[in-house]
Design a protein around this nucleic acid. Structure first.
Lengths: 147, 147
DNA sequence: TTAAGTGCAAAATCTTTGCAAATGT
DNA sequence: ACATTTGCAAAGATTTTGCACTTAA
Protein backbone atom coordinates (compact mmCIF):
# COMPACT_ATOMS: atom_id res chain seq x y z
CA UNK A 1 0.00 0.00 0.00
CA UNK A 2 1.38 3.40 -0.91
CA UNK A 3 2.85 5.63 1.74
CA UNK A 4 2.07 9.05 0.31
CA UNK A 5 0.80 12.05 2.23
CA UNK A 6 -2.65 11.88 0.71
CA UNK A 7 -2.68 8.11 1.00
CA UNK A 8 -2.34 8.45 4.73
CA UNK A 9 -5.03 11.12 4.79
CA UNK A 10 -7.49 8.78 3.10
CA UNK A 11 -6.67 6.03 5.57
CA UNK A 12 -7.45 8.32 8.46
CA UNK A 13 -10.66 9.45 6.85
CA UNK A 14 -11.91 5.90 6.46
CA UNK A 15 -10.75 4.88 9.89
CA UNK A 16 -12.49 7.81 11.51
CA UNK A 17 -15.73 6.65 9.94
CA UNK A 18 -15.35 2.99 10.83
CA UNK A 19 -14.89 1.98 7.24
CA UNK A 20 -12.37 -0.58 6.08
CA UNK A 21 -9.59 0.58 3.81
CA UNK A 22 -10.51 -1.27 0.66
CA UNK A 23 -9.19 -0.82 -2.84
CA UNK A 24 -12.49 0.44 -4.35
CA UNK A 25 -12.93 3.06 -1.63
CA UNK A 26 -9.38 4.32 -1.95
CA UNK A 27 -9.72 4.50 -5.73
CA UNK A 28 -12.85 6.59 -5.49
CA UNK A 29 -11.32 8.94 -2.95
CA UNK A 30 -8.23 9.35 -5.09
CA UNK A 31 -10.20 10.29 -8.17
CA UNK A 32 -12.52 12.68 -6.35
CA UNK A 33 -9.68 14.41 -4.52
CA UNK A 34 -7.68 14.82 -7.71
CA UNK A 35 -10.42 16.66 -9.57
CA UNK A 36 -11.29 20.25 -9.01
CA UNK A 37 -14.85 19.74 -10.22
CA UNK A 38 -17.56 17.51 -8.84
CA UNK A 39 -17.75 14.22 -10.67
CA UNK A 40 -20.80 12.31 -11.81
CA UNK A 41 -21.36 8.64 -11.23
CA UNK A 42 -21.10 7.85 -14.98
CA UNK A 43 -17.85 9.83 -15.23
CA UNK A 44 -16.41 7.99 -12.26
CA UNK A 45 -17.41 4.76 -13.86
CA UNK A 46 -15.56 5.68 -17.02
CA UNK A 47 -12.46 6.85 -15.18
CA UNK A 48 -12.26 3.86 -12.89
CA UNK A 49 -13.14 1.50 -15.69
CA UNK A 50 -12.64 -2.14 -14.83
CA UNK A 51 -10.93 -1.17 -11.60
CA UNK A 52 -14.21 -1.33 -9.77
CA UNK A 53 -17.60 -2.90 -10.28
CA UNK A 54 -20.50 -0.59 -11.05
CA UNK A 55 -22.55 -1.88 -8.14
CA UNK A 56 -19.65 -1.37 -5.77
CA UNK A 57 -19.30 2.18 -7.01
CA UNK A 58 -22.95 2.88 -6.20
CA UNK A 59 -22.45 1.46 -2.75
CA UNK A 60 -19.22 3.31 -2.08
CA UNK A 61 -20.81 6.60 -3.09
CA UNK A 62 -23.84 6.01 -0.92
CA UNK A 63 -21.72 5.06 2.08
CA UNK A 64 -19.45 8.06 1.65
CA UNK A 65 -22.40 10.38 1.37
CA UNK A 66 -24.05 8.96 4.48
CA UNK A 67 -20.84 9.43 6.43
CA UNK A 68 -20.38 12.97 5.19
CA UNK A 69 -17.15 12.16 3.36
CA UNK A 70 -18.52 13.42 0.07
CA UNK A 71 -21.52 15.43 -0.93
CA UNK A 72 -23.77 15.40 -3.91
CA UNK A 73 -24.67 18.25 -6.24
CA UNK A 74 -27.46 17.85 -8.75
CA UNK A 75 -26.60 19.38 -12.11
CA UNK A 76 -28.65 20.74 -15.01
CA UNK A 77 -29.85 17.31 -16.07
CA UNK A 78 -30.68 16.07 -12.60
CA UNK A 79 -27.55 13.94 -12.55
CA UNK A 80 -25.77 13.61 -9.22
CA UNK A 81 -22.20 14.87 -9.09
CA UNK A 82 -19.92 14.09 -6.19
CA UNK A 83 -17.18 16.05 -4.49
CA UNK A 84 -15.16 15.56 -1.34
CA UNK A 85 -16.41 17.60 1.59
CA UNK A 86 -14.34 20.01 3.57
CA UNK A 87 -13.57 19.18 7.20
CA UNK A 88 -16.65 20.87 8.62
CA UNK A 89 -18.97 18.31 7.04
CA UNK A 90 -20.09 15.50 9.28
CA UNK A 91 -22.84 12.97 9.17
CA UNK A 92 -25.34 15.32 10.76
CA UNK A 93 -24.37 18.86 9.85
CA UNK A 94 -23.81 18.60 6.17
CA UNK A 95 -23.22 20.65 3.08
CA UNK A 96 -24.56 23.82 4.56
CA UNK A 97 -23.97 27.21 2.91
CA UNK A 98 -22.23 25.74 -0.11
CA UNK A 99 -22.36 27.51 -3.47
CA UNK A 100 -22.00 25.40 -6.59
CA UNK A 101 -21.32 26.41 -10.16
CA UNK A 102 -22.49 24.32 -13.07
CA UNK A 103 -20.91 25.24 -16.40
CA UNK A 104 -23.47 24.95 -19.17
CA UNK A 105 -20.70 24.52 -21.71
CA UNK A 106 -18.39 21.82 -20.32
CA UNK A 107 -20.98 20.68 -17.75
CA UNK A 108 -18.42 20.65 -14.94
CA UNK A 109 -19.65 21.34 -11.43
CA UNK A 110 -17.43 23.51 -9.24
CA UNK A 111 -17.61 23.95 -5.49
CA UNK A 112 -17.20 27.67 -4.85
CA UNK A 113 -16.08 27.34 -1.26
CA UNK A 114 -15.17 31.02 -1.10
CA UNK A 115 -18.78 32.04 -1.72
CA UNK A 116 -21.36 31.80 1.01
CA UNK A 117 -25.08 31.75 0.59
CA UNK A 118 -26.49 35.06 1.80
CA UNK A 119 -28.95 34.99 4.67
CA UNK A 120 -32.59 34.79 3.67
CA UNK A 121 -35.78 35.54 5.53
CA UNK A 122 -38.25 32.73 5.18
CA UNK A 123 -41.97 33.34 4.78
CA UNK A 124 -43.95 32.93 8.00
CA UNK A 125 -44.30 29.32 9.00
CA UNK A 126 -41.38 27.99 7.01
CA UNK A 127 -38.28 26.82 8.85
CA UNK A 128 -35.08 26.49 6.87
CA UNK A 129 -32.50 23.94 7.91
CA UNK A 130 -30.25 23.82 4.89
CA UNK A 131 -29.85 25.43 1.51
CA UNK A 132 -28.24 24.74 -1.78
CA UNK A 133 -27.45 27.43 -4.31
CA UNK A 134 -26.46 26.36 -7.76
CA UNK A 135 -25.33 28.90 -10.31
CA UNK A 136 -25.38 28.13 -14.01
CA UNK A 137 -23.13 29.85 -16.50
CA UNK A 138 -19.75 29.66 -18.20
CA UNK A 139 -16.72 28.67 -16.18
CA UNK A 140 -13.25 30.15 -16.23
CA UNK A 141 -11.75 27.58 -18.58
CA UNK A 142 -14.55 27.78 -21.11
CA UNK A 143 -14.43 31.58 -21.01
CA UNK A 144 -10.68 31.45 -21.73
CA UNK A 145 -11.19 29.27 -24.78
CA UNK A 146 -13.79 31.61 -26.19
CA UNK A 147 -11.39 34.54 -26.23
CA UNK B 1 -64.49 21.78 -24.57
CA UNK B 2 -65.09 23.67 -21.37
CA UNK B 3 -65.48 27.43 -21.40
CA UNK B 4 -64.00 28.30 -18.04
CA UNK B 5 -61.68 31.20 -17.34
CA UNK B 6 -58.67 28.98 -16.73
CA UNK B 7 -59.63 26.76 -19.64
CA UNK B 8 -59.30 29.72 -21.93
CA UNK B 9 -56.01 30.68 -20.34
CA UNK B 10 -54.58 27.24 -21.08
CA UNK B 11 -55.77 27.47 -24.67
CA UNK B 12 -53.96 30.76 -25.10
CA UNK B 13 -50.83 29.39 -23.50
CA UNK B 14 -50.67 26.47 -25.90
CA UNK B 15 -51.57 28.61 -28.89
CA UNK B 16 -48.86 31.12 -28.05
CA UNK B 17 -46.32 28.32 -28.14
CA UNK B 18 -47.55 26.71 -31.35
CA UNK B 19 -48.79 23.65 -29.54
CA UNK B 20 -52.03 21.91 -30.33
CA UNK B 21 -54.74 21.86 -27.68
CA UNK B 22 -54.82 18.18 -26.91
CA UNK B 23 -56.43 16.36 -24.04
CA UNK B 24 -53.19 15.13 -22.43
CA UNK B 25 -51.67 18.61 -22.47
CA UNK B 26 -54.73 20.23 -21.00
CA UNK B 27 -54.93 17.58 -18.28
CA UNK B 28 -51.33 18.19 -17.26
CA UNK B 29 -51.80 21.96 -17.19
CA UNK B 30 -54.94 21.59 -15.13
CA UNK B 31 -53.24 19.46 -12.50
CA UNK B 32 -50.13 21.60 -12.28
CA UNK B 33 -52.09 24.83 -12.04
CA UNK B 34 -54.34 23.43 -9.32
CA UNK B 35 -51.51 22.53 -6.98
CA UNK B 36 -49.65 24.97 -4.87
CA UNK B 37 -46.55 22.77 -4.76
CA UNK B 38 -44.38 21.49 -7.59
CA UNK B 39 -45.36 18.01 -8.70
CA UNK B 40 -43.16 15.08 -9.58
CA UNK B 41 -43.54 12.94 -12.66
CA UNK B 42 -44.56 9.87 -10.61
CA UNK B 43 -47.14 11.93 -8.71
CA UNK B 44 -48.57 13.26 -11.96
CA UNK B 45 -48.74 9.74 -13.25
CA UNK B 46 -50.69 8.65 -10.23
CA UNK B 47 -53.05 11.62 -10.36
CA UNK B 48 -53.73 11.37 -14.06
CA UNK B 49 -53.96 7.61 -13.93
CA UNK B 50 -55.28 6.03 -17.07
CA UNK B 51 -56.19 9.44 -18.43
CA UNK B 52 -52.85 9.70 -20.14
CA UNK B 53 -50.13 7.31 -21.26
CA UNK B 54 -46.84 7.38 -19.36
CA UNK B 55 -44.81 8.01 -22.48
CA UNK B 56 -47.07 10.87 -23.47
CA UNK B 57 -46.63 12.37 -20.02
CA UNK B 58 -42.85 12.32 -20.43
CA UNK B 59 -43.19 14.01 -23.79
CA UNK B 60 -45.66 16.62 -22.62
CA UNK B 61 -43.42 17.56 -19.71
CA UNK B 62 -40.38 17.82 -21.94
CA UNK B 63 -42.20 19.95 -24.48
CA UNK B 64 -43.61 22.25 -21.80
CA UNK B 65 -40.21 22.67 -20.23
CA UNK B 66 -38.56 23.47 -23.56
CA UNK B 67 -41.20 26.08 -24.26
CA UNK B 68 -40.86 27.61 -20.83
CA UNK B 69 -44.43 26.76 -19.83
CA UNK B 70 -43.27 24.85 -16.78
CA UNK B 71 -40.00 24.56 -14.93
CA UNK B 72 -38.31 21.77 -13.11
CA UNK B 73 -37.06 21.73 -9.53
CA UNK B 74 -34.86 18.88 -8.37
CA UNK B 75 -35.72 17.78 -4.85
CA UNK B 76 -33.78 16.04 -2.10
CA UNK B 77 -33.79 12.71 -3.89
CA UNK B 78 -32.83 14.09 -7.28
CA UNK B 79 -36.38 13.67 -8.51
CA UNK B 80 -37.70 16.30 -10.91
CA UNK B 81 -40.74 18.28 -9.74
CA UNK B 82 -42.68 20.46 -12.11
CA UNK B 83 -44.49 23.74 -11.62
CA UNK B 84 -46.09 26.22 -13.96
CA UNK B 85 -43.94 29.26 -14.67
CA UNK B 86 -44.98 32.82 -14.15
CA UNK B 87 -45.46 35.02 -17.21
CA UNK B 88 -41.87 36.28 -17.33
CA UNK B 89 -40.56 32.83 -18.27
CA UNK B 90 -39.96 32.23 -21.95
CA UNK B 91 -38.02 29.70 -23.93
CA UNK B 92 -34.80 31.65 -23.63
CA UNK B 93 -34.90 33.58 -20.38
CA UNK B 94 -36.04 31.00 -17.93
CA UNK B 95 -36.55 30.37 -14.27
CA UNK B 96 -34.23 33.13 -13.16
CA UNK B 97 -34.08 34.29 -9.55
CA UNK B 98 -36.53 31.70 -8.30
CA UNK B 99 -36.34 30.44 -4.73
CA UNK B 100 -37.68 26.96 -4.03
CA UNK B 101 -38.49 25.30 -0.74
CA UNK B 102 -38.35 21.55 -0.31
CA UNK B 103 -40.01 20.27 2.85
CA UNK B 104 -38.01 17.40 4.28
CA UNK B 105 -41.09 16.12 6.07
CA UNK B 106 -43.87 16.03 3.47
CA UNK B 107 -41.41 16.35 0.56
CA UNK B 108 -43.50 19.04 -1.12
CA UNK B 109 -41.70 21.58 -3.25
CA UNK B 110 -42.91 25.17 -2.99
CA UNK B 111 -42.13 28.05 -5.32
CA UNK B 112 -41.43 31.02 -3.08
CA UNK B 113 -42.15 33.66 -5.69
CA UNK B 114 -41.96 36.42 -3.12
CA UNK B 115 -38.32 35.64 -2.35
CA UNK B 116 -35.58 36.68 -4.72
CA UNK B 117 -32.09 35.30 -4.87
CA UNK B 118 -29.69 37.93 -3.53
CA UNK B 119 -27.00 39.22 -5.87
CA UNK B 120 -23.72 37.34 -5.79
CA UNK B 121 -20.27 38.26 -6.99
CA UNK B 122 -18.78 35.50 -9.07
CA UNK B 123 -15.10 34.57 -8.82
CA UNK B 124 -12.96 35.99 -11.63
CA UNK B 125 -13.54 34.25 -14.94
CA UNK B 126 -16.91 32.81 -14.07
CA UNK B 127 -19.99 34.22 -15.79
CA UNK B 128 -23.35 33.52 -14.21
CA UNK B 129 -26.40 33.32 -16.42
CA UNK B 130 -28.92 31.74 -14.10
CA UNK B 131 -29.22 30.52 -10.55
CA UNK B 132 -31.33 28.20 -8.56
CA UNK B 133 -31.64 28.34 -4.81
CA UNK B 134 -33.32 25.50 -3.05
CA UNK B 135 -34.00 25.66 0.66
CA UNK B 136 -34.62 22.54 2.69
CA UNK B 137 -36.62 22.54 5.90
CA UNK B 138 -40.09 22.22 7.35
CA UNK B 139 -42.98 23.87 5.58
CA UNK B 140 -45.88 25.79 7.06
CA UNK B 141 -48.32 22.91 7.07
CA UNK B 142 -45.95 20.46 8.67
CA UNK B 143 -44.96 23.02 11.29
CA UNK B 144 -48.66 23.53 12.13
CA UNK B 145 -49.19 19.83 12.69
CA UNK B 146 -46.23 19.57 15.02
CA UNK B 147 -47.67 22.10 17.41
C1' DT C 1 -55.80 16.89 -45.77
C1' DT C 2 -51.80 16.68 -43.26
C1' DA C 3 -48.50 17.73 -39.93
C1' DA C 4 -48.41 17.16 -35.00
C1' DG C 5 -49.36 14.35 -31.26
C1' DT C 6 -50.69 10.00 -29.03
C1' DG C 7 -50.41 5.18 -27.38
C1' DC C 8 -48.53 0.80 -27.40
C1' DA C 9 -44.60 -2.43 -27.50
C1' DA C 10 -40.09 -2.94 -26.94
C1' DA C 11 -35.33 -1.30 -26.25
C1' DA C 12 -32.02 1.09 -23.61
C1' DT C 13 -30.60 3.00 -19.10
C1' DC C 14 -30.12 3.39 -14.56
C1' DT C 15 -30.34 1.62 -9.79
C1' DT C 16 -31.15 -1.83 -6.31
C1' DT C 17 -31.15 -6.54 -4.19
C1' DG C 18 -29.55 -11.27 -2.99
C1' DC C 19 -25.98 -14.07 -2.14
C1' DA C 20 -21.52 -16.56 -2.38
C1' DA C 21 -16.67 -15.45 -2.40
C1' DA C 22 -12.97 -12.39 -1.00
C1' DT C 23 -10.81 -9.13 2.15
C1' DG C 24 -9.41 -6.18 6.10
C1' DT C 25 -8.76 -6.07 11.06
C1' DA D 1 -11.99 -16.05 12.89
C1' DC D 2 -15.49 -12.95 11.74
C1' DA D 3 -17.91 -9.09 10.33
C1' DT D 4 -17.55 -6.15 6.37
C1' DT D 5 -17.23 -5.43 1.68
C1' DT D 6 -16.98 -6.92 -2.96
C1' DG D 7 -18.49 -8.78 -7.55
C1' DC D 8 -21.60 -11.08 -10.26
C1' DA D 9 -26.25 -12.20 -11.82
C1' DA D 10 -30.61 -10.93 -11.93
C1' DA D 11 -34.64 -8.09 -10.68
C1' DG D 12 -36.79 -3.61 -10.64
C1' DA D 13 -37.33 1.03 -11.99
C1' DT D 14 -36.96 4.75 -15.04
C1' DT D 15 -36.61 6.88 -19.49
C1' DT D 16 -36.26 6.70 -24.51
C1' DT D 17 -37.25 5.12 -29.30
C1' DG D 18 -39.88 3.33 -33.33
C1' DC D 19 -43.91 3.16 -35.59
C1' DA D 20 -48.81 2.78 -36.80
C1' DC D 21 -53.00 5.13 -35.53
C1' DT D 22 -55.55 9.34 -34.20
C1' DT D 23 -56.59 14.12 -33.89
C1' DA D 24 -56.50 19.32 -34.11
C1' DA D 25 -56.20 22.86 -37.36
Amino acid sequence: MEETETGRRFDQLLEKNNLKKTQPRLSVLKVLASRKTATSQPALEEILGAEIDRVTLYRVLRTFEEKGIIHKVIDLNGTANYATCDESCTEHAHDDRHVHFNCTHCLHVYCLDSLHIPALTMPAGFTASQMNLIVYGICEECNEKER
